[in-house]
Amino acid sequence: MQGKQISRQMTSADWYRSLKADADSYFQAFTAYRKRTDRHKNTLQMFSDAVPSLIIDNKDNNDKSVFEYLGVGCGAGLSDLTLLRQLRRRFPSIKATMVEPSSKFLEEFNQNRANIPNDLDDVTFDCRQATFDEYQQSCEGARFDCVCGISVLEYVEDIDRMISWMYSALKENGSLVLFFTSENNVLLKFWTHSDQRDIHLIKPSLVEKLLEKHNVRKIDRLELDSTINITECFEETSEAGSRLLDFVTHAASFRRSAPTEILREVLDYLSRNSVRKDDGIYAPNNYTCLVVQK
């Protein structure tokens, strides 16, 4: 089956129920994924070390005004909070607007924020439960020193429009941070292979091309290497493995709902695109980060 698409386009099948449209199932599936990948640990390292310096270097050191930050699709917010802790060392006052459609992720965000010691005492948070489109319609004229979108481009119908809006929402000398799946990420490979229409193929070259028409001053490209332990996906009775399969396929209750043929093809695809080690089966889970200067 090498090179063939998963049979019966998943998003048009009778059994298919979109994970994207089921907030509770998505939260559970993402939680299973988060526990089985080192992506988040590596992302926090990147957002603690490399990303803050690129943003700070773009600002005037004499500027003492309030630093305006927008986090789009912030989720549980650990990456945004890590970045804000570093920015707080340079900017004495920060206002952070956090936008996230899931109430459960916003609850996690507030818990994570409460667990951070004094580093964020002078950061004012405005947390809004809203989609990108809902927020865009409500914030006409808002401008930010930094706009950060972590794993949001994959879920947007019109990538060009979103990138254009995020860039236009920057102040002069502002920074746009975009973090998304790289081309050799097994998730993106699978979503493309299975004609998964809930997710969009995002190539760094495409994003850079869309940005070029805005005459951006500078783009720094960072690459993040990580893996997912998908061992439990092959264990029929593993509830965690089933949740992880939901995230991989973006189909709610995939193991129970999908026809046997499709389940077998998906597991075969994952097996062929992973590496077996002594402690489990691992698939590539790499990401690209672009830091764009206006």
Rank of each mutant, 00 (worst) to 15 (best):
C127Y: 03
D158K: 13
S53W: 06
L290G: 03
T11F: 09
P52G: 03
C127I: 12
D57V: 06
L84K: 01
S226G: 03
S12Q: 11
A32I: 05
G77I: 02
V123P: 01
S194G: 12
F27Q: 01
K35M: 03
C74F: 08
L222I: 14
T231I: 03
K277C: 12
T11C: 10
N118T: 09
V99C: 08
Y69D: 00
S257C: 11
T237Y: 14
Y69K: 05
T43Q: 14
A283V: 04
L178R: 01
G174Y: 13
D279F: 08
R36L: 06
K171S: 11
H250K: 08
T82L: 02
Q293P: 03
W15S: 05
C289K: 00
E140Y: 08
T192Y: 15
F30V: 03
S12A: 12
Q111T: 06
D198M: 05
L44T: 09
G73S: 05
Q5R: 14
Y135S: 09
K203H: 14
A283H: 04
W15Q: 01
S194P: 11
I199F: 15
I228R: 05
E239L: 15
T260R: 15
N110P: 01
M10E: 09
E239I: 15
D57S: 14
R272A: 06
N185F: 03
R34V: 01
D195K: 15
M98F: 03
N273C: 00
E235N: 08
F179N: 09
P92V: 09
K20V: 10
G149E: 04
A32Y: 00
F234E: 04
A114T: 13
T131A: 00
Y155G: 01
F47Q: 05
S93R: 11
N273A: 02
M98Q: 12
R197M: 15
R217N: 15
D14G: 07
E172T: 14
M46W: 13
F247M: 05
V66D: 10
N173M: 13
L270S: 01
R34S: 06
L270W: 05
D60H: 08
K189I: 10
L211H: 05
F190C: 02
G241S: 04
D279K: 11
T192F: 15
R161P: 02
A251C: 15
A258F: 07
D225N: 11
Y135Q: 10
I262M: 00
Q136V: 15
Q129C: 13
T37R: 09
M166Q: 14
A21T: 08
T11V: 08
Q28V: 09
S274T: 04
P101V: 15
K4Y: 13
A251Q: 13
S253I: 05
M1S: 02
R113I: 08
N58P: 13
I202V: 12
Y26H: 09
P52A: 02
D133Q: 12
S48I: 08
E212Y: 09
L54E: 03
S93L: 08
S226A: 11
E261D: 15
L270P: 04
T131K: 06
Q28I: 05
P284D: 02
D49T: 06
G75R: 02
C148N: 15
I219Q: 01
M10V: 13
